[in-house]
Design a protein around this nucleic acid. Structure first.
Lengths: 215, 215
DNA sequence: AGCCAAATGAGATTCCTCTTGCATTAGTAC
DNA sequence: GTACTAATGCAAGAGGAATCTCATTTGGCT
């Protein structure tokens, strides 16, 4: 396991001391990475998490399975990389109607739409499944969701500036109060929230914020 | 595949028309079922969902692996049966302090304790993982959670009777408003909610209920 | 342009999951 | 108790996932 500490003069030590794909990140390595992640995203959308296997990713991406195992370890490794890549993408425009409750209802609809889409939902669901056993997946999932909270908390901050919500309110709590019942309905209840439910969630979150319960 | 429709007189038709384990449910069949479910629960607790395999369940329960495959199909089938069995167990006593917010905070602690325990948490986590792909697991998970909601909604109904909460309030909404952020913190955030957070969740749910937002 | 090793591809190999066939055990009805 | 057969155990084997070896390709550097 341990590498020799003396300066390698001319012996047959050929083991690189970094992970594969980091020494020559350009050219074929970069192309392969893109092809693998794209194939993984497509297969996740088409087949779901359980049915997506490394062999299929290899076939579709035209990258050898042994290469995928070497660089990502296993299926979850690919999905984690995919998730990290997707979360780096910039967010869209935020609702800004001047009313907190209405903004939250619109945001709730955006959250549902994202979860219904391949890029957002399928990968996130895979992370939920993998996260039950893997701390790394859990951390990535939390990172993704936290990133989205940071991207959207401006909605609550505007309400604070307007004076609709007490100063000292934690904008992230406001977003989480909206998001929690949405995810609960999705992953635990197994159903997509209705528009009526989204409005109720937004009403509860806005009311709690206005009442100073989210500081 | 298709069985002959004529009355079997004396031919070599030996295929039973019901699932294995249903024709002779007593004696060895019952003992094996108990041993398999107990072993599965232990292994889930010790190894987690991903690492629990049929072969290990067979070794620990002293039931042949082929028997497990025949009766439950695969690992998830065993876990589903285990979940259905656990959910049939009676619930414990409910908090009843006369104050909705305090009752909800105590209930929140109970929910966290259940999720931290093998019987509740490990099986539920396995269902969350399996539910991402399996509609059956999703249904079972929803059934378990709904059952718990039904068992605990009395807390909210008492508040309605006391007049602390408007008539027409849906007691299940009250419970779900408490539970959603707990599950959110657990499965999405990857962390166990703190006592302070539990109190905030209870405060928000109680306040929403009192304000008539949960009808 | 030329060199060196990182990265890859193809195939062999190992390990594990799940299925199947057959002989044996044991639950249930009589 | 006896008969019938569902249920089980055991072993063989098919199929797939993951690892390993080695020859080849190719990116990065001079």
């Amino acid at each position: 396991m341990q590498e020799e500490s003396h300066l390698a003069v001319g012996d047959s030590d050929t083991t690189p001391d970094t992970a594969p794909g980091t020494r020559r990140p350009g050219g074929r390595t970069a192309r392969n990475r893109e092809a693998v992640l794209e194939a993984a995203l497509e297969l996740l959308s088409e087949l779901g998490y359980a049915a997506t296997c490394v062999q299929d990713i290899a076939n579709r991406s035209k990258v050898a399975a042994s290469t995928i195992y070497r660089r990502w370890g296993n299926r979850d490794g690919v999905i984690l990389d995919l998730a990290q890549t997707l979360v780096a993408e910039p967010a869209g425009a935020l609702p800004d109607t001047g009313d907190l409750e209405r903004d939250l209802a619109l945001l709730g609809q955006v959250i549902v739409d994202v979860m219904s889409s391949p890029r957002g939902g399928v990968v996130q669901s895979a992370l939920v499944a993998a996260g039950v056993d893997s701390p790394t997946a859990r951390k990535t999932l939390a990172q993704i969701v936290n990133r989205r909270v940071e991207d959207t908390k401006l909605i609550a901050e505007r309400a604070i500036e307007r004076g609709d919500v007490p100063a000292g309110t934690d904008a992230r709590h406001v977003i989480n109060t909206l998001a929690a019942p949405i995810y609960h309905r999705w992953y635990i209840g197994g159903e997509r929230p209705t528009t009526e439910e989204l409005h109720r969630y937004a009403r509860v979150a806005a009311h709690a914020a206005r009442s100073g319960l989210l500081s």
